[in-house]
Design a protein around this nucleic acid. Structure first.
Length: 109
DNA sequence: AGCCTGACTCGGA
DNA sequence: CTCCGAGCCAGGC
């Protein structure tokens, strides 16, 4: 697998392709980026560049739950951004969930 | 160059 | 069904 910055670029490119009002999982983005097992790297990539021109808030874990707890990007902020796009956020036990069946994005476009 | 850590995931107990 | 552990890739120290 490539170990260049291109991986990041690909990740960003994939994330940018996520339509407004839709969400994708880390694993999915990683797969689209060319490395199915690099879900963690995706999160990392987003974390290093978060708050740029990439809709990082559209990326969630495989459960549709926001894993962020005490990071630079508060989950509340992510929830707000998603709600602005029409995505319904479900709050359960202090965690934020998104209905992937409804808002999940299909890579096959 | 080597070890630790992490916005993840999957599989077994 | 829930909890715990191992696997994975890349970056930081």
């Amino acid at each position: 697998m490539p170990t260049e910055d291109n991986f990041y670029l690909r990740v960003f490119a994939v994330v940018r392709r996520i339509p407004r009002g839709k969400v994708a999982t880390y694993g999915q983005v990683a797969a689209l980026a060319g490395t199915p097992r690099a879900a963690r790297i995706v999160g990392w990539a987003l974390r290093t560049q978060a708050k740029k021109d990439v809709p990082w808030h559209r990326v969630l874990n495989t459960s549709g739950m926001i894993s962020i707890e005490n990071m630079n990007a508060p989950k509340e902020e992510q929830a707000r951004l998603l709600e602005l796009e029409g995505v319904v956020i479900e709050r359960k036990a202090g965690n934020l969930f998104v209905d992937l069946k409804k808002y999940g994005w299909s890579a096959i476009v």
